[in-house]
Design a protein around this nucleic acid. Structure first.
Lengths: 101, 101
DNA sequence: AATATTGTTCGTACATTTGCGAACAATACA
DNA sequence: TGTATTGTTCGCAAATGTACGAACAATATT
């Protein structure tokens, strides 16, 4: 007998808004997004120089932003150039504004 | 000898944006904000009826939203009427929009 | 083939978050 | 004074998040 799954209680918009918000919910990730947006610093290594955390930690934060769809990586070894996913960023802003109409 | 504290690496805006975002980073809390905004359901008990979590869990989520400054509670025992903190909600939206200019 | 550069993954440790039911507090009512 | 009603707090368990250095992978350079 099938019990109503938890994901049925929330709309896709609610889940998506929460997902985006969670990804933004750390100062390092906010800073990463701003660095990416400034265009002067799209490479992982450049960010590691700017931010007060280990590069492995930055890798994790980059992954979370990537999984949330807020950024995308352009791999040309040995460097990786990260960019903001403009479409999803717009979507995120739209959802946030939409939460309270 | 004073070592640079971690909070010095991020601006107040970055910290505040991350704080708001973190508070929004859960479907239940998104739903709570929307229920509050709909005005038909400002009491804790009403939310407990709508949401698929225990009332004690809702209490925790309400506290997190309150601590983040996104809502405020109007206590008239035995009920508590929660309302959105409009000023901070505006600030949050402003900060989110401001993150990427 | 060695070496250097860039970034990810792994292993570990610790803190925070999420969730529940039980117990508690505070008021209103019988 | 019982007894509902409404929410919060407590105690616990499990999951997730944060952070680091070491090890690894992939390429470019010597």
């Amino acid at each position: 007998m099938k019990v109503k799954s938890k994901s049925d209680y929330f709309t896709r918009e609610q889940e998506q808004a929460a997902r985006f918000a969670k990804a933004l919910g750390h100062p390092v990730r906010i800073a990463i997004l701003q660095l990416l947006h400034s265009q002067t610093c799209c490479y992982h290594g450049d960010m590691a120089d700017e931010l007060p955390v280990a590069k492995s930690t930055i890798s994790q934060h980059l992954n979370e932003l990537k999984d949330a769809g807020l950024i995308q990586g352009d791999i040309t070894p040995p460097t990786v150039k990260y960019c903001i996913n403009a479409d999803n960023w717009e979507l995120a802003k739209k959802l946030f504004n939409q939460v309270l109409e």
